[in-house]
């Protein structure tokens, strides 16, 4: 299990936008300032963030530094976002990504994605 050393700061007195809350598949997740989507989900106890195109196996963020692409999620309707590279914004809507969401790409590695 992952846990935070310091509690997530609650929304301030003037509420609303103060607390960094976002929606993950219908659940409200609280984040701390500086959190990426991937870190906030992991520290909220979410264990899996996508399933693979080939076998459907569950996956979760692996490197947290933008290198492994295991953290691909749908964020505010846009698929294939690297959740470890996206800062949490209040009110975001985040979903697990099932299989291969089509990447609208200009190229990619040899042969395309």
């Amino acid at each position: 299990m992952l846990k935070r050393l310091e509690p997530v700061p609650a929304g301030g007195a003037d509420k609303e936008d103060e607390g960094l809350e976002f929606d993950f598949e219908g659940t409200r997740i609280s984040a701390a300032p500086g959190d990426t989507v991937a870190a906030a989900l992991m520290l909220a106890g979410i264990r899996t963030t996508r399933s693979t195109p080939a076998s459907g196996a569950s996956r979760a963020p692996y490197c947290l530094m933008g290198s492994c692409f295991e953290c691909l999620m749908e964020i505010d309707g846009v698929p294939n976002r690297q959740a470890c590279m996206v800062a949490v914004r209040p009110g975001m809507v985040v979903r697990r990504q099932a299989g291969a969401a089509r990447l609208a790409l200009t190229g990619g590695p040899e042969g395309g994605l």
Binding site: L2, R4, L64, M65
Partner: peptide, 13 residues
């Protein structure tokens, strides 16, 4: 490295 990033950037253990 990922666990260390959780600790450095997010105070997570």
């Amino acid at each position: 490295g990922a666990l260390q990033i959780l600790l450095k950037a997010h105070g997570g253990v």
